[in-house]
Design a protein around this nucleic acid. Structure first.
Lengths: 200, 200
DNA sequence: GTCTATACAAAGATAGAC
DNA sequence: GTCTATCTTTGTATAGAC
């Protein structure tokens, strides 16, 4: 994909906004901060985004496209690209965590917006409600290998909930914490051995 | 404990602040909102709290004291008050969840501040860092019954992480979601039967 | 496409009267 | 203990020049 000069500018804006949102959330993020970060004045920035709402939408769209890359990557890590392939759930989740460990800025933004979205006033309220409804469902569309009698929906749901919690703990003190190590500990509880041994 | 008129006023302030924090977080919460909620002007409110930082401290202390009530209650629900008693971990966690289901305002506040505390600029950064360091440790001081070979720290840690995630999902759509039901699903994954059957 | 200038509201906070 | 009045800074946003 060739990138025009304007798209590049928009990507810089989105990136700066994601960073700011991860530090102070929606209400603590100001147009001035973003304008400074990308070397524009406030009206200069508003030329691109219209208003604060537009800035959020732009950033969310950009984030969504980057998330898709993450999912592709996670699949790649399972080394199976065939749509009829049978996947290892622990391995896929490990792939997501590994990817997230490399982009703390995204995870920071996601964690804060996810919490702010509790309130119906949040511009992200519907976005995260929708995510809650679809995340587990989407993953259930793949064919997973698992021990007999496993409640796949329950396991996936618990895993994603625990992942959100683990990521926040990691980011509270990223210098003394290793996301991948934290997840390995979580994994041992959610996918206990020896039952999951053949499916890791 | 007898309550003077001033303490009562302070409690009203703390309660209004907790509610506001749960809606818009630290940066979205203003002195004006709190002043309106308790029927004061901004300077009237500042007479009690000094500045915004003081308002936060006041609220956090009030919240902490209410959390202690929660722990007492959770123990009570296990029907064992003897310090040498042996506790059921699923049952204790269920008690906490049951209690939280009755105070969505507190959980909302906690969830948002916990996420905002990712940033070192947050007035709550150290508070939540400290909580992360001590929460599991404190619970390990009790005597828990569990299957042979269980990694109690890993299980507790995963349970609390999942609980944070579950609570946010619940609050995203509390009308169509039941926290206790969500937790029962999580519980079945973290404490799988039949191994945990005798310890529920 | 980006700026200066500007409008207007609201933020946190203080002085000082009652 | 609570108010009015006020200060200063910062927020989102627009008009209009270049």
């Amino acid at each position: 994909m060739a990138q025009s000069g304007e798209n590049n500018q928009i990507e810089r804006i989105a990136q700066a906004t994601a960073h700011a949102l991860g530090r102070r959330g929606y209400y603590g993020t100001t147009l001035q901060q973003i304008a400074d970060a990308v070397g524009l004045t406030k009206p200069g920035l508003l030329h691109y985004v219209g208003n604060k709402q537009g800035l959020m939408q732009l950033t969310l769209e950009w984030y969504d496209s980057s998330v898709k890359v993450s999912i592709v990557l996670a699949q790649y890590r399972t080394r199976e690209q065939d749509p009829h392939a049978i996947y290892s759930m622990p391995s896929a989740l490990r792939g997501i965590v590994q990817f997230n460990a490399l982009r703390p800025d995204h995870v920071r933004m996601f964690s804060i917006l996810n919490a702010e979205a509790i309130s119906a006033e949040s511009p992200f309220h519907e976005y995260f409600q929708n995510r809650d409804r679809t995340l587990v469902r989407d993953f259930l569309n793949y064919r997973w290998k698992a021990p007999e009698g496993t409640d796949l929906a329950a396991v996936l749901s618990t895993a994603f909930n625990a992942m959100d919690g683990v990521q926040i703990r990691w980011l509270h003190d990223p210098r003394h914490t290793d996301l991948n190590a934290l997840w390995r500990q979580t994994e041992r509880t959610i996918f206990p051995l020896p039952q999951w041994e053949p499916y890791m």
